[in-house]
């Protein structure tokens, strides 16, 4: 398989989830696309190194997480409030109820801490706990406790948000 076809296959298998991670992290569609593009540029640039990695999705997720962290450090952005407000305001009444729920969910995710945002998007995308532990560098035991707390926190924020 040529390098280009391998990359295409990897991209198609992972891009959607990586985009969700970036979107959950930045809360902004444009930035999420930029970050996803940068992530896959790194993947392409270092595809040879991947051959030693056990699981490509773990490897790509780690690149994406680091890319998001670097992005925020460089941009000095705090996506907590702006992002989903923006989504709701700009798209306004046109968006369907489903989209509104998604926007609310992203807005609530934006209120979590940095590492919580990363973990929860992976949980929502149903990544195995072992993989999330490998990506986030937390032991599986600690991760389970952490995930439990984040789930509770997000649910609370969402329900509170829905009431208003």
């Amino acid at each position: 398989m040529s390098k280009e076809s391998l990359f295409k296959e990897i991209f198609e298998a992972n891009s959607k989830k990586i985009y969700h991670l970036c979107y959950g992290y930045t809360g902004d569609d444009e930035s999420a696309n930029d970050l996803m593009q940068e992530t896959f540029m790194k993947v392409w640039q270092n595809l040879d190194k991947f051959r030693n990695q056990a699981l490509i999705s773990t490897w790509i997720y780690r690149i994406a997480v680091n890319t998001c962290l670097s992005y925020l450090r460089v941009e000095k952005r705090h996506p907590k409030d702006e992002l989903t407000d923006n989504i709701i305001e700009t798209k306004g009444e046109e968006i369907s109820e489903k989209n509104e729920q998604i926007s609310s969910l992203y807005k609530c995710i934006a209120q979590l801490e940095e590492n919580e945002r990363i973990i929860i998007t992976m949980v929502l995308d149903e990544l195995p706990y072992a993989e999330i532990a490998a990506i986030s560098g937390i032991s599986e035991g600690n991760l389970r406790v952490k995930i439990h707390r984040i789930k509770q926190k997000l649910t609370e924020i969402y329900n509170k948000y829905e009431r208003f």
Binding site: D29, F40, I102, L105, D125, Q152, T155
Partner: peptide, 23 residues
Amino acid sequence: FEALKVIWHNQITLPKVSHEDVF
């Protein structure tokens, strides 16, 4: 949380970047 998961999986927002865009 399960209900939030359903909302998450219903999202239709897709990335606008293709592998070709990276190249």
